[in-house]
Design a protein around this nucleic acid. Sequence first.
DNA 1: CCGCGACTTTGACGCAGATCAAACCGGCCG
DNA 2: CGGCCGGTTTGATCTGCGTCAAAGTCGCGG
Lengths: 256, 256
Amino acid sequence: MENSSADDGTPSGCGATAEPAATARCGRSGAQSCDRCRVRAVSVCACLDQDDLEALDALSERASFEAKQTLFIQGDEADAVYNVTCGTLRLYKLLTEGRRQIVGFLLPGDFVGLSLSERYGYSADAIDDVAACRFDREAFIAFVERKPHLLRRLHEAATHELTIAQDHMVLLGRRSAEEKVAAFLVTLRRRLTRLGASAVTIPLPMTRLDMADHLGLTLETVSRVISKLARQKVVLMVPGGLRIMDPARLERLGEG
Amino acid sequence: MENSSADDGTPSGCGATAEPAATARCGRSGAQSCDRCRVRAVSVCACLDQDDLEALDALSERASFEAKQTLFIQGDEADAVYNVTCGTLRLYKLLTEGRRQIVGFLLPGDFVGLSLSERYGYSADAIDDVAACRFDREAFIAFVERKPHLLRRLHEAATHELTIAQDHMVLLGRRSAEEKVAAFLVTLRRRLTRLGASAVTIPLPMTRLDMADHLGLTLETVSRVISKLARQKVVLMVPGGLRIMDPARLERLGEG
DNA sequence: CCGCGACTTTGACGCAGATCAAACCGGCCG
DNA sequence: CGGCCGGTTTGATCTGCGTCAAAGTCGCGG
């Protein structure tokens, strides 16, 4: 599998610069120290000073997963926590008859395993190629116990996740299909912008089915809504993603 | 409304023993120290030793709210956090055209304001009469900074909430009306049992509309599903609540 | 005791989105 | 180049739940 050249001027390695063309690749460059980490500023590690950072670095190892690979499944013994540095993960829960709810998509800078609990509460797989810092859970907890500052940061991250989850409840419980899809695109765009991507074109590495399972819809409905948005020139369909033609309009569609 | 005699041996006052007959009352007994607090064992305070508990006690004041009273609304400056000792709260978000999503019901022992952030992320009102410990937010944060143990506990509580939120996403996104109502009753029953209530009869202080706005349904649908469960003798409708006649069956209906 | 208001139940009907089905598209491998 | 495969689009039809409407219940205040 190739991973060297990107199809535009954007730096090609993995990291915070999610690429417009949605073809971001994760470098396999092996170990790389924290201070040149592209997602440090937006990650939980941002609260650590140089010394602590080195100590944490010593605990970490680089892990990479290829597209479709499963990191863990719900109920597994949680032996590791991760900090995503590149690529996209889906976190989901399954129930009978193949029903699935994707509780979130994780982007570079996001942390997996905030709860620090003994078992994973959801399953996770890589959507495209993913790179992450891996920490042994026990070791990470021991480290956190000695750094209240980091614990405070983890708590902030967890309550931020909680807020996002509650907003998503509103979406799932009380919004129409069109509002759901528009709101999804708007939030994704905001997250990418925050990561430093240009975000006029949003990469969508996940399938229509993934989006549907996140939004409480079917893949056909998602497809229809996107087609409609394209017909109305709110977005333009491009391979691997969408170009946002009328952000203001999209935003209006996304809110109640 | 009477509040003295329960229909079984359960003590009737306010606190952890949510009453079968759903007529629980919050005493107006004013200040009451932590060590005789009925919800301490299940609250975040459970992690504190005698000294710390007294220090925290000094920061707290007793607050009470009567049914339908609003504690705060989304976006308000968050000047206080609360620990519920009695009664039921609804936490919700509003959007246009009167649409509402109730993100959760809070019972005795639950904490309001886990995020410690500057503004409330949702609105809260009392469903029945509610009593709570009130802490000035700034003071509480300062206290937490000095007690990593308590921070750790708050973090656990927050991630527990997050798990609950994710489970609720599954419910909202991927379950039928009947499954939603059944699952709601099952979870509520579990929470009440944990609080020490007998839980053969579940009190439902909230209206059908409240339930509907929690489950992503209309009040008519909730009513129809409950009628159906009653027709099938899975539950029995009693004033102010439901008597669970066939818990196993209900549980089966509630899962996928 | 009556009447009012808040909530609930029940019925008839309609529609947003699910389901079923088929064609389409682009990438990959032989 | 051609056929396959995973994913997407689009159309036709179906249905679970929403909407609209009306009657029923209960507690409360006059």
